[in-house]
Design a protein around this nucleic acid. Sequence first.
DNA 1: AATGAATGAGCCTTCATTCAT
DNA 2: TATGAATGAAGGCTCATTCAT
Lengths: 190, 190, 190, 190
Amino acid sequence: MKKGQKTEEFILKKSIKIFAEKGYTAVTMKDICEATDLSRGGLYRHYSSTKEIFTAILDKDIEDNGSIVDEVIQQKVPAKVIFAHFLAGEKEAALGNNKGWFFAVHEFAFMENDRRSYLDERVFHAGQILKKILRYGHEKGEFKKFDIETLSFHILTVLDGIKTSSSVLSISEETIDRQIDFIEELIYIN
Amino acid sequence: MKKGQKTEEFILKKSIKIFAEKGYTAVTMKDICEATDLSRGGLYRHYSSTKEIFTAILDKDIEDNGSIVDEVIQQKVPAKVIFAHFLAGEKEAALGNNKGWFFAVHEFAFMENDRRSYLDERVFHAGQILKKILRYGHEKGEFKKFDIETLSFHILTVLDGIKTSSSVLSISEETIDRQIDFIEELIYIN
Amino acid sequence: MKKGQKTEEFILKKSIKIFAEKGYTAVTMKDICEATDLSRGGLYRHYSSTKEIFTAILDKDIEDNGSIVDEVIQQKVPAKVIFAHFLAGEKEAALGNNKGWFFAVHEFAFMENDRRSYLDERVFHAGQILKKILRYGHEKGEFKKFDIETLSFHILTVLDGIKTSSSVLSISEETIDRQIDFIEELIYIN
Amino acid sequence: MKKGQKTEEFILKKSIKIFAEKGYTAVTMKDICEATDLSRGGLYRHYSSTKEIFTAILDKDIEDNGSIVDEVIQQKVPAKVIFAHFLAGEKEAALGNNKGWFFAVHEFAFMENDRRSYLDERVFHAGQILKKILRYGHEKGEFKKFDIETLSFHILTVLDGIKTSSSVLSISEETIDRQIDFIEELIYIN
DNA sequence: AATGAATGAGCCTTCATTCAT
DNA sequence: TATGAATGAAGGCTCATTCAT
């Protein structure tokens, strides 16, 4: 890997933190200069706006999200286990220190109209994964027979709501657990 | 009403629109000057920051929200009707041209740490109202027997999720309707 | 006395304090509005700038300074007593809470070139008084025979220096007393 | 020397002039921009307030003031010569085109309470030098036997008074000369 | 006389962005 | 590639001043 590429990864890594702390809009190129210890010119050689940096982060993010779901389904892992794992991931996201990042993504989507497709895509992607799980649960007779499209949207929306709220309100782990239980009871057969 | 007060209301009215369009952070005092046709100094006489203006709007909002719910409950209006009405209001919020306002409130909460209590309060308030309705539905035997605390949080979160998403993604009215139906089926008996 | 005149005196009285606290330049019409509890318009009816107010204060000051010196000389009060009294007044000025006022006058003179004559006049006036005392002391044989012009300038300058310094440095009462003693020893015979 | 440092010295050099002309308070960053032909941002890169600039000037001033007095004393130069030279310097300060600077320093001290120690320090420093000269004069039997502490304060105060006045009043060179003579007669033996 | 709403000018400050080195 | 000096635009804020009431 060349030095330039390394620098770029370094910039992105540092930037995520800053975005998670301050949101998307509030971050300035100056902030990133300081965080990366790069000079103005040095940073501009690689990226010429926060928008560009943010976009680069999103791109990488999507790449990384190669789904393991397919694998575990093939391995006949019980649907409940897979689903529980999925929920655990979401809980993690709502409680961890990336709460801010979640907000930043929303802000980005709101501010940069021309980039909304990103969000759409990401949401679509998440939907695909969840639907796969739900369908698999149906087939294995572990899950109740809801309309999958509606149900997956419902679940994603609740989870989104939780993540959004948690970046902005004080939400206890217990509250989240109760919601997760609620969802599980909703779809598990007995 | 004195002239000053009138001007202040006018400022708030115009500002809501701007916040709904641009979000919280992106709005400048200059924007508000332009929208209200006030000079710099004229505006500053009444409010000295967008934060102050935003806060004033929220304050008024809370005042206005005197609940009609108590009334209709006393009038023995069917719980399903009340609840349906509540949902209709939320749908309206998600589709109307104040989508942006909802996002702005989130942004405000994220940016102004010292004002988070506002949001907490508002959410708490909304929760109280919803719980009243759900309890009433229980008592009248119209609603299933869920744990009210959990259920109300669940519903609020979904609705929040929908409103949040709609300010940022392209969500069809149909999708929202399906979610509303889903919620109703979830709690109505038969 | 008419109401208007009363208001004006009130404004001047309050303003002196403010000038003594903040100096001349730093005082704004707004400050004076606040101190006098007058509205913008109310204040402007009487004075339309801080310069005007300051000038008015100076004018009054000069009026007030009708010299008692002539009287006491006629009453054959000992020169040493008169001079000691004069020095005591200066000490008072250096220690009292009008230290700031003294600075403000300097500032005014520096800033408003067209008003420098005021200062010249005031200094001239003070010089006249002091010279009267010195001359009287000579004649009575109480004071040494210095050149009066030079001596009076010297004394005034020291006292001025003390007053100036005291508005800006931390000068002890003892230090001032020593200077006063020094001056007295300088001119008293034996 | 790097370019940045050069610019900073240039800024200070130009600023002294402006402060001497307008005093401390009245100077704006804009004034300095114009005088240095720097853009707003360019200036701010180096100094972010007139206070900072003024402080920097004072700092440099103190550095520069390495006393030559010690040297000349060692070389047994007559005390009268040294003292006369000292007085000449003060006369120069009172008449030269830096009159305004002297006032600016006072203004600075008055306005910036947190920086008063500067003035105290400078005055103390000046006192040390003068006392050295006076003591040396005593020892060589050239000067009368006054209390050195009191005498040095007296002289400094007169000189200060002269410098202050000259920035604000019209004082002739002759007047200053007479004061200088007066001081010399005061302390020289015969 | 007095009030306080409104204007507009002037200065402050911070960045995105460019560029010579 | 990287540095950091410099520019200029954008927005913030505070007043002196005017004016209708």
